[in-house]
Design a protein around this nucleic acid. Sequence first.
RNA 1: GCCCCCAUCGUCUAGUGGCCUAGGACACCACCCUUUCAAGGUGGCGGCACGGGUUCGAAUCCCGUUGGGGGUGCCA
Length: 482
Amino acid sequence: MTTASPSGGPRFRFAPSPTGSFHVGGARTALHNWALARRLGGTFVLRIEDTDEARNRPEWTQGIIDALEWIGISASDDHFEGPHFQSANAEGHVAAAQRLFESGAAYYCDLSGQEVQDRAKELGITGYDGYSRDRGLEAAPGRVLRFRVPEGSTIVHDAVRGDVNFDNDTIEDFVLLRGNGSPMFLLANVVDDIDMAITDVVRAEEHLPNTPKQQMLWQALGATPPRWAHVPVLVNEQRKKLSKRRDKVALESYRDDGILPEAMVNYLMTLGWTPPGAEEAGSEIFSWAAMEEAFDLSDVTLSPAFFDIKKLVAFNKQYIKNMGVEAFVAAVDTDLPAEWDRSRFTAIAPHIMERLERLGDARELVDFLFLEEGADPELDHASWDKATKPEWAPALLRDVTETYASLADADWNHESLKASMESVMANYEVKLGKAQALPRVAVTGRSVGPPLFEAMEVLGQAETVRRLRGAVHRVEVPGTPE
RNA sequence: GCCCCCAUCGUCUAGUGGCCUAGGACACCACCCUUUCAAGGUGGCGGCACGGGUUCGAAUCCCGUUGGGGGUGCCA
């Protein structure tokens, strides 16, 4: 197994257990580890914690790698190492346990879970009381190996929270090997970290209570414990830890919703951390390069942060607006029907980019431009009723229609379309905002959408005029089916 | 129950004893701009959980209370 970074830099690790989806909280700690590994010239080790065989599937691993790739943690980057699999080191885990037993740091116990509970109840305590500590039991089926927690106290030096002191009296002699001989997570985790020469463990705060146990294990195994860092958990609106059951936590689901990875990364990184000097910037939008350079564990906030989708979407909107037409068209491509004319879409793209919260919203905003020959857009009746209401509206519509119909080919562009509209509306003494309302509904079917003249330019004269004439007919002949 | 962590606008945060009349961002509201909707501009609303100390001076330090969170498995 690998033991050091080629560069000799610090070794971080990200150790997810493979389950169906990739948790946004996991994404955040992965990002923290990644930023640090790269900035410090170290290594990001990916280790799949696949010990719990019952709930694992091989394809989950690929899911993790894909998700990491999506947020910019590339397996082909020099700072990336792995994936390693915890299951591959099962022998090492057991061997370590054996060493612990031989050195007296661990001992066997034949009490069942139920018996431990009964004893605790009888003694009026909680947990395991150390019943078998000095009974000198040997290994045997059904017996668990427990760690002999030493006297005293354990201080965890944490890079985000400072020193945390645990009184060893409050830590029971925890299980290392199950009755069937298989290693527990805590043991496997530590053994792997030691074997992989991990120097820095950066993970979510929920692991903090486990840390003194792990630190004792490192020491009992003759290794120097890593630097620890526990970042606060992400919570939902009820301030509870984000849970798979109740909350939308799958990174993939945000990707499918049309959240840009850059927006997700920016949001996740600035959740509980602000780059120094950010206030002067007046914005919370930062490039990965800037965040990677500035990220430091000592600047991470101490309290749990609410994962606010509204703010995520706000970030996303910013990123879509600024992404560049070409990249935008490429990004939405898979959301668009295959038969849509891409060059036509590219023409309207600049006008919709600053109106989108999510990539997926693009389609319905411009669908009226991609109907079959001679088909009318679906009409929003409320908008139609409202737009036809003013007395001058039908007449203005008729005039605009005929003006547009008589426009020369060369003049079919948004400037002259606007100018023509303006000269017509002057006769009715209405402003452009109102004048464009009915033509808009006539052409797009709705009252909101991309800028009208630009849209009509893209739609083309023949189709635009056809739709306008249809609308003229509809207002003039009451009862015409819409 | 026990252990551990935490506590600034609705949310994410800046703030490490005087620059704080507490700053920014998101959200919300108003106005301006405007080709609808957006975007953009300007302004507004809104917070140091509470009580004691320490100090000339406390959002910042200490203690307590309250509140929230995490953990407490032969899960990971």
